[in-house]
């Protein structure tokens, strides 16, 4: 897996990025916003996959990292009037620091306890947003004002509310995270993460400090999710508590399970597919959560490897 066909893997990923770039010229206007949103949320899913897929740690609280990025960036603009790059950095930093704290605590537990602990910490985060409604806007949320969502480079400026700029910004973030993920899982560090997933005890006996390695993975995962949240706030101009609710901890799990855990492109495919399903079914039913519920059960019952995981197992063993 790791030594074979690196060129093929990189070619595939660059091809996917090129395809997404080309789609911005081929697709009708309506899909630009949707696809930009999907790419940003796919970054969220990739961050989740880093921990769930490669380290085997099932968190039920990743909404707090997405939320930390969302509110970190959003409030930096709304309350402090900071510019876009600074706000993005604040969001990213909030997520990374939060992930470090949560990791230090939650990694003392394993398995089911880890799932419940992460869920509870995320619930605390969510309730804090409601409690400090004066600043956060509570469950009403807040709009990030349009004039503030502009990137200034001296004379030129990029308006993030412009659909094309927004699409390209989302694509840039997505591509960066995708390539970083690919490089990470192919690296020595990626090999150690998979070893921890497969047998932590054995990995320790090869001289690895598994706690530190897991902690780094939690921080990287949290930072990626926060980047997604920060980008969401800045590109789509809304911060709301629902993005930190337990539902947004379940969704990345669903996307990753659907696309294929421990595959680099699975998160994108899962997110895309789920949005497509919702788009199709929204004509028949408003029961969006029903679809999420049924999909979760069907996936764990019949399709635990997800789309790309199954393809890799059956046909394309080299898929990263």
């Amino acid at each position: 897996m790791s030594e074979a066909s690196p060129a093929k893997a990189y070619a595939l990923h660059l091809g996917v990025i090129a395809l997404l770039f080309a789609l911005s010229f081929l697709l009708p206007e309506y899909y630009h916003g949707l696809l930009a949103r999907i790419m940003v949320l796919a970054v969220f899913a990739m961050g989740y996959n880093m921990l769930f897929g490669y380290v085997g740690l099932l968190s039920l609280g990743h909404a707090m990292f997405f939320g930390a990025g969302l509110y970190g960036a959003g409030l930096a603009v709304i309350q402090l009037g900071w510019n876009v790059p600074a706000a993005f950095a604040v969001g990213l930093g909030c997520g990374a620091v939060l992930a470090l704290i949560i990791g230090l605590l939650a990694l003392r537990t394993t398995g089911v306890a880890f799932m419940i602990v992460t869920m509870m910490f995320a619930q605390v985060f969510y309730l804090l947003i409601l409690y400090f409604a004066v600043w956060t806007g509570g469950d009403q949320g807040q709009v990030v004002p349009q004039p503030a969502r502009v990137l200034n480079f001296g004379a030129t400026s990029l308006d993030l509310t412009n659909p094309t700029v927004r699409y390209m910004s989302a694509l840039a973030l997505f591509s960066l995270v995708l390539l970083v993920t690919l490089a990470t899982v192919r690296s020595r560090y990626g090999r150690v993460l998979v070893a921890i997933r497969e047998n932590e005890e054995r990995t320790k006996m090869l001289g690895y400090d598994t706690f530190s390695n897991k902690l780094i993975a939690v921080v990287v995962s949290g930072a990626i999710c926060a980047a997604s949240g920060a980008a969401y706030a800045l590109l789509f101009g809304y911060v709301g508590s629902s993005f930190a609710s337990v539902q947004y901890s379940i969704l990345p799990l669903l996307w990753v399970l659907l696309g294929g855990a421990a595959t680099t492109l699975g998160p994108l495919i899962g997110t895309l597919f789920m949005y497509y399903v919702i788009d199709v079914t929204s004509g028949y039913t408003s029961a969006y959560l029903l679809i999420v519920g049924v999909a979760l059960i069907l996936l764990v019952l019949f399709f635990p490897k997800g789309i790309l995981g199954t393809i890799r197992q059956r046909w394309l063993g080299w898929l990263p």
């Binding site: 379940i250 519920g293 979760l296």
Partner: peptide
């Protein structure tokens, strides 16, 4: 897997 499945049940 059962936690994921019971989350599904919750939504349904």
């Amino acid at each position: 897997a059962t936690i994921v499945a019971t989350i599904g049940m919750l939504y349904i």
